[in-house]
């Protein structure tokens, strides 16, 4: 039972980490608190479902289609809806409030479209739904695939952001947008790009989640909240922090569900969240500023 809980927890945590990485990019670099983030995740889940059931394109291939779409979607949302807010906001605090209000509206627009199109039913499809023996535990192959994909995409993103000049530039914007301008980084373009990249990650997370979980048109808010918790646990803008915090959250939830009571997972999640807010407000790995 321990091995099963451990592996299930890591799979869940890998998905959380991936989804949270996108949010931390959007919040840390673009300074947009995107409340419609989870809706992007779920929209991608429905996309994978449609591709799989209607045209017979498996979710692995679907990933290659949906992730670029997520990028384009984020790029357009930033350009059309958020860019005017950024231009208008006097400072970071007012941008935060404006972006929360605007994306709160966007949440209901996307959710409404999905409700009309797919209804309120739980949706799922079957892909690689057979057991695999890992360290004596029987795990569904789709969960293992989900974990591998999350690690590959998250790891790739980490390398991109730490090993390339372009990635360093994005991190520089996260540290200080005003100084970024002094070294010739177009902070506005960087913000738009980071937001689009965040949406692409949300889309990747949505496709991956749909491989092994059921979802509904209204479950986006759960992803937004969990991603937010992971981002704050890991420290805003901190990718490695998001990765570790995501894995921790996945493990804690699974262990609580296995050994205590499945009904307590949400309570455990928020207990961690509260403890971190109280004692480590800069995140588990963040420095106090």
């Amino acid at each position: 039972m321990l091995a099963t809980a451990l592996i299930t927890g890591l799979v869940l945590g890998g998905t959380y980490a991936l989804v949270a990485m996108g949010l931390t990019l959007q919040y840390g670099i673009s300074r947009i608190m995107n409340l419609a983030y989870g809706e992007t995740v779920i929209a991608a889940s429905f996309g994978a479902y449609l591709l799989n059931n209607a045209i017979g394109i498996n979710p692995l291939l679907g990933l290659a289609l949906i992730v670029p779409l997520g990028f384009v979607f984020g790029y357009l949302v930033y350009g059309l809806m958020l860019r005017p807010l950024v231009a208008r906001s006097r400072d970071a605090a007012s941008l935060e409030i404006n972006s929360i209000l605007a994306t709160f509206g966007l949440l209901f627009v996307i959710q409404g479209v999905m409700l009309v199109a797919f209804g309120t039913n739980f949706t799922s499809y079957s892909y690689m739904n057979f057991g695999v023996n890992v360290l004596g535990a029987n795990i569904a192959a789709n969960r293992l695939l989900a974990f591998v994909l999350a690690v590959a995409i998250g790891g790739g993103l980490y390398l991109l952001l730490t090993r390339t000049r372009w990635g360093t530039a994005l991190r520089a914007v996260a540290v200080s947008p005003s100084s970024a301008a002094l070294v010739g980084i177009d902070a506005d373009r960087a913000a738009r790009f980071a937001f689009a990249l965040g949406s692409a990650l949300a889309a990747a997370g949505g496709v991956i989640v749909s491989m092994y979980q059921t979802f509904t048109a209204t479950s986006g808010v759960i992803f937004t909240m969990k991603a937010l918790i992971v981002v704050i646990m890991g420290g805003v803008g901190n990718l490695l922090g998001a990765l570790s915090a995501g894995l921790i959250l996945g493990l804690v939830e699974t262990f609580v569900a296995t050994y205590l009571d499945p009904g307590l997972t949400l309570a455990a999640t928020y207990l961690i969240f509260l403890a971190i807010l109280l004692w480590r407000p800069a995140g588990l790995f963040g420095r106090a500023r």
């Binding site: 000049r165 360093t168 530039a169 991190r171 520089a172 996260a174 540290v175 200080s176 100084s179 070294v183 980084i185």
Partner: peptide, 12 residues
């Protein structure tokens, strides 16, 4: 950029 290393600051 306080969170970046010396090398990264120069690279940027």
């Amino acid at each position: 950029f306080g969170d970046l290393t010396v090398d990264e600051n120069l690279q940027i």
